[in-house]
Structures are given as structure tokens and as C-alpha cells.
């Protein structure tokens, strides 16, 4: 039972990261390998806000997410748009964007190592126990999960209940047809990319409140998020959330039953299963 609850609590944060990435990949068609660096940057921001100004990381999101929105928008507008314009085909764009975001990943990681150093970082926020069903859990983890669920709920309302949200989903389904119904595809793509960055940053702020982080861990999170996105079906928010919770469960189960050093192996086991059984993802449609 404690495995299930710990797994779900962890999965909540994963869900937010993966939803951010699925917006970037599903709508803007950019597979952003530097997304994990965005997450780590938000971790350091949250630490800085907390230790210098005493700002609670959950409220810190109000500052961190918009900052990341602007930064991600600028990266898309000035870094990735030229590639979108240059690409002759979807495959070409995929290769180019993988390589550029790859470069960005290294550049950001190098910068953060220079500025913040390579040490493991942690801070104490709401470091007390709450009993759930007879077992004790860290209050910070529970708060992070609730906050993640709230943000995901808001996003769901935006995407499924507003006009602009519907336009963004239309771009995810088919960017060419979306233009026929008067959706400004380049603008929606840039917006989705920036929003994805903001969501990942929010996840980073929450993650930092209970997780020991360092400047070099971004790649691992990028990889997990990518696997979640594929498991859930590219561009599908609900799929990403379910897949993230599954991954949180699988990781916690492996870490507590077999060995905590095998979390990547758990991720890969799930990934291979998905590839063999349902490569289009839980909610994805089969593409011909």
C-alpha cells in the first residue's frame, strides 16, 4: 500500500513534466531534449527564492512559471522557428530539432554547472509527516502532488473548455488542416511550446521541495518524460497523466522491492512493453 501511495505521489510530478513535454512535441512538433534542463533550472530558482526571500516553492511557481514561459517562447521564436521554416519535411525537422535541443541541453547544463556548481542540493520545506491510511508520508510530497493535480486540472479546463485551447488541440491533430479553420498555427505552436516550458518549470519548483537535485540530472528526467509521452500517446494530455502515474508506481515498486539503483531499468521495462504491445501509446491513434 505504501508503495502505491508513494508511487502516485511521485507520478504526480512526473505527470506535470510529461504534460509540458507532450505540448511541446505534440503541438509545436519539437522534441525538446533540453526540457530536463528547464526543470533543473526551476529547481535552482525555487531554492534561491526560498533561501533568500523565504518564498514558499508552491507560491514561487507564480514567479517561476511565467519566467520559464518567456524563456521558452524566446527559444522557440529565435532558436527553433528558423529550423521549422528551413525544414523540407517533418523528418528533417525532427532530426534538426533533436540536434539543436541536444546542443541547448549541453549548453544549459554547462552554464548551470558553472553558476551553481555540481553539488547535490536540497532544502527543508514542510519537512514533517502526514498519516495516510496508517502510514506516514512527507507533507511536502503530498502538497506537491495536490499542487500538480490543481495545475493539471487548470490546464485541462483551458485545453478542453476554451476556444484557444481547442485551437491548440486542433494543431496537435493536424497542423495543415488547422490552418483551414483559421488557426494561426505558428502562433499556437509558439504558445504551446512556451506553455509546455512553463508547466515543466512548475513541476521543477514542486520537485525541488522534496527531491535532492543537482545540475546534471536533467537528462534523466527528459528521458523519463519522453517515455511517458510515448506511453500516453504523443500530444494526449490524459494519456500522459496516466502513463506518468504508472511510471511513478513502477519505479517506486522496483526501488523498494528490488534495488533503488534500478529505477531506469524499471522505466525501460515499461518502455519496451509499450513498444512491443502498443507503440502508438495508451490513447494514441494508429498512424498508417
Amino acid at each position: 500500500m505504501s508503495i502505491i501511495i508513494t508511487g502516485l505521489l511521485l507520478g504526480g510530478t512526473y505527470a506535470l513534466i510529461a504534460v509540458g513535454l507532450t505540448l511541446q512535441y505534440g503541438v509545436a512538433r519539437i522534441m525538446n531534449l533540453a526540457n530536463g534542463e528547464n526543470l533543473v533550472f526551476a529547481c535552482f530558482m525555487a531554492l534561491w527564492l526560498f533561501s533568500t526571500f523565504g518564498i514558499n516553492p508552491v507560491f514561487g511557481i507564480v514567479l517561476i512559471a511565467p519566467a520559464s514561459f518567456v524563456l521558452s517562447w524566446a527559444i522557440y521564436r529565435f532558436g527553433l522557428k528558423p529550423l521549422v521554416n528551413r525544414a523540407k519535411s517533418r523528418g528533417q525537422l525532427e532530426v534538426d530539432s533533436i540536434l539543436v535541443t541536444f546542443g541547448l541541453m549541453f549548453a544549459f547544463q554547462g552554464l548551470m554547472l558553472l553558476v551553481f556548481g555540481g553539488r547535490d542540493q536540497t532544502y527543508h520545506f514542510l519537512d514533517m509527516a502526514v498519516p495516510i491510511l496508517g502510514q506516514n508520508y512527507g507533507l511536502n510530497r503530498v502538497v506537491a502532488f495536490v499542487a500538480a493535480a490543481l495545475i493539471a486540472g487548470l490546464l485541462y479546463m483551458f485545453l478542453y473548455r476554451t476556444r484557444y485551447g481547442t485551437a491548440i488541440r486542433a494543431v496537435a491533430v493536424d497542423p495543415v488542416s488547422a490552418r483551414l479553420v483559421a488557426v494561426d498555427v505558428p502562433r499556437a505552436s509558439a504558445f504551446a511550446f512556451a506553455l509546455g516550458g512553463a508547466l515543466t518549470a512548475a513541476a521543477g519548483a514542486l520537485l525541488s521541495s522534496y527531491y535532492t537535485f543537482n545540475a546534471a540530472m536533467g537528462v534523466t528526467f527528459t528521458m523519463k518524460a519522453l517515455i511517458i509521452v510515448i506511453m500516453g500517446g504523443v500530444g494526449d494530455i490524459r494519456g500522459a497523466i496516466i502513463a506518468a502515474l504508472l511510471l511513478g508506481l513502477a519505479e517506486t515498486a522496483v526501488a523498494s522491492l528490488i534495488d533503488p539503483g534500478l529505477t531506469i531499468a524499471a522505466t525501460y521495462a515499461l518502455f519496451v512493453l509499450v513498444l512491443l504491445i502498443r507503440p502508438q501509446g495508451i490513447f494514441g491513434r494508429r498512424v498508417s
Binding site: G79, P82, L83, D96, L99, V100, F102, G103, L104, M105, F106, A107, F108, Q109, G110, L111, L113, L114
Partner: peptide
């Protein structure tokens, strides 16, 4: 020695833009 990942990253970006 502390700048290696930064250099690798920038080289990557430069190659994709300038020498595709």
C-alpha cells in the same frame, strides 16, 4: 576543464545552423 559541456553544446548548435 569546467567549460567542456558548454563548448560541446555550443558546437552542436553552431553545426546544425551553419553546417547542416
Amino acid at each position: 576543464p569546467n567549460h567542456t559541456s558548454l563548448v560541446v553544446g555550443l558546437a552542436f548548435i553552431a553545426i546544425v545552423y551553419l553546417l547542416p
